[in-house]
Amino acid sequence: MIEINKLTVSYGSKDVLAATDLAIADHETIAVIGPSGCGKSTLLYSIAGLIKPTSGSIMINGKSLLEPRMETSVILQDYGLLPWKNVYQNVALPLSIRGVAKSVIEDKVNALLNALHIEEQINKFPVQLSGGQQQRVAIARALIAEPDLLLMDEPFSALDATVREEMQDLILNLHQEHKLSLVFVTHSIEEAVILGKRIIVMQPNPGQIKRIITNPHFGDVKFRNEFAFHKLCVHVRQEMEGI
């Protein structure tokens, strides 16, 4: 359970995020959408504990968030993979940092790489991978620490349409399987509607939540091809254009 209370983030005198309230239930998925510069990344980084709020607070499971949590994983827009570490070392990083035993790390990394079908890339470096493979490595690194909260900042924006859909399905499956909460930023209305149980539309100057749209069809398997899907997309678009 995440409770965001009057969260304000300012740079200088400019409020990038103004008195934002939001509650996120366990095992929920939240899509954050809105025009460029409206504070989506700022909101996400705040929930990650990477940005200190100017005022207001974030409580996660009843505890005040003061620094990055061990149980929160973040996937950033360009994945943030380290070029000097190979796939294995990148995925293992969160565990090596926590001082987990080598043999435990090895088992977990191998299991995840298999599950994500990138076991053949294990010794490659990020520059030697395709965009979709890099994305999978980033997902593996995010999942290795068995998080209860996964945060993603435009994770699929660099991928082409087919790989993108594949990744969206993968994330949906992982969400079901691992029972984690998911908050992600996207520029794509379709993606917000596919992956978001609730869709948060934000507006700029100052950055704030304009509307929260509940998605009644979330979790339907063949939802992507249905009329209701397109109807919801149009609804979200209208909300965004009304800004």
């Binding site: 980084y45 990650a48 929160t72 973040v74 827009q77 994945y79 570490k85 940092i97 926590r98």
Partner: peptide, 25 residues
């Protein structure tokens, strides 16, 4: 890149570990 810093920091890395895994290499 900022995202590289943030992604290492989000794993709970200490200052020393940020040097070890990010800055020095």
């Amino acid at each position: 890149s900022r995202t590289m810093f943030l992604s290492v920091r989000s794993t709970g890395a200490s200052k020393l570990q940020i040097y070890q895994h990010l800055i020095l290499p």
